[in-house]
Amino acid sequence: MIEWFTWVQVAVAVAAGLLCLVLGLAGRVPSDLTNGALAVVELLLVVQLVVAIAAPAFGNEPTGSVLEFYTYLVGALLLPPAAVFWALLERSRWSTVVLGVAALAVAVMVYRMLQIWTVQQA
């Protein structure tokens, strides 16, 4: 796991989440902007997956449970597509809020993944 990349990823996911929450609560239906924000979040997760698979070969090993790490990663990968699918199906302002909820959940999960990879307090 590359630490700076992970922090960028958390920041992007939080920004995308807040953007969707604000636009959704302001009454906007899902748009190219909000769906696109989730697509960026998903793209970064795929990059993270590639990095996680490659990193141990370069001496960058997780300190915590590999199983737990990948459970979070796979779970996070499922969220943006599910939320965007929902947004395409039902074009209401609340679908935009759902996009935001998904992006914020991804941010929390990526942060947890960083903890599992770098520091183990439990």
Binding site: A83, W86, W94, V101
Partner: peptide, 9 residues
Amino acid sequence: RVLVAVYGV
């Protein structure tokens, strides 16, 4: 819908 989404997460 939002409630369902949060439940799903």
